[in-house]
Design a binder for these strands. Structure first.
Lengths: 124, 124
DNA sequence: ACTATATATGAACAATTATTCAAATATTAA
DNA sequence: TTAATATTTGAATAATTGTTCATATATAGT
């Protein structure tokens, strides 16, 4: 069992059980970097605090850190850390007004993804 | 700053900066358990290996552990561990034929979620 | 300049988790 | 029964990550 990433691993004794299936999958799967980005997107949404932030921002135009902190019952620091992650992933944007920073959703896709996920949870 | 979950935390000195916004969000956000389930769903999709498994199963009807192991260049054990997580989340189903276990996607929603996420990555 | 407030940030800690390894099942064939 | 193979499983390890705490920055008011 080679560990080199470029080697073909002989996973099972019957090396490739279903050649046609493996061929089809290899030809039609997006490249690794795209799949990694996709996994990263879901990873960011896969956290209770960040999910609550996104759903809160879905209800209103914008919220400041203190609003989110109040609604989620978490410290402003914890909220700020998570907002930073959402910012870096371009899922939220912000504007500054004096001392207060207002955050809002950055992307229409976010709502779509949440909606489909919601259907899976409630219907399925 | 109380830690009791039922207490209202006084996060900032100006306790609730925007009462109307906070009220609206509180009234329209799904309950905690639903949001947790939603975060769990995305958490499961937010892993490189599991994402590759899902995308592979999206291309063909079904694949056995050995097929997945070959395509993803991971040990059957690693694949099996991840399939177990996908099974428990009802994202995949399986059927057994002799020694071989065939896995397939369990839900139409999975494809939808992946598609919307894909749009976000590629278009945005 | 000084104080107060809203937010951000870095380090530390605790908790979660993906992979590996070894061993256990389950099924088929001899 | 014995051997071979596909898959599963439990324990151990290494890596990642969310929160807290202390501190820093930014802005407004006095």
């Amino acid at each position: 069992m080679k560990k080199d990433k470029n080697e073909i691993i002989e996973v099972c004794q019957t090396i490739e059980i279903h050649k046609d299936i493996i061929k089809k999958v290899r030809e039609n799967t997006p490249d690794e970097s795209t799949l990694n980005k996709l996994a990263d997107l879901f990873k960011i949404m896969g956290d209770n605090t960040r999910m609550k932030i996104l759903y809160a921002l879905l209800q209103v135009d914008e919220m400041c850190v203190c609003d989110l902190s109040t609604v989620l019952k978490k410290t402003p620091s914890a909220i700020s850390h998570q907002l930073r992650i959402l910012r870096q992933a371009d899922l939220v944007k912000y504007r500054k007004e004096g001392k207060v920073v207002y955050y809002s959703l950055n992307d229409e896709h976010v709502k779509e993804i949440l909606d489909v996920g919601f259907s899976h949870i409630t219907e399925g």
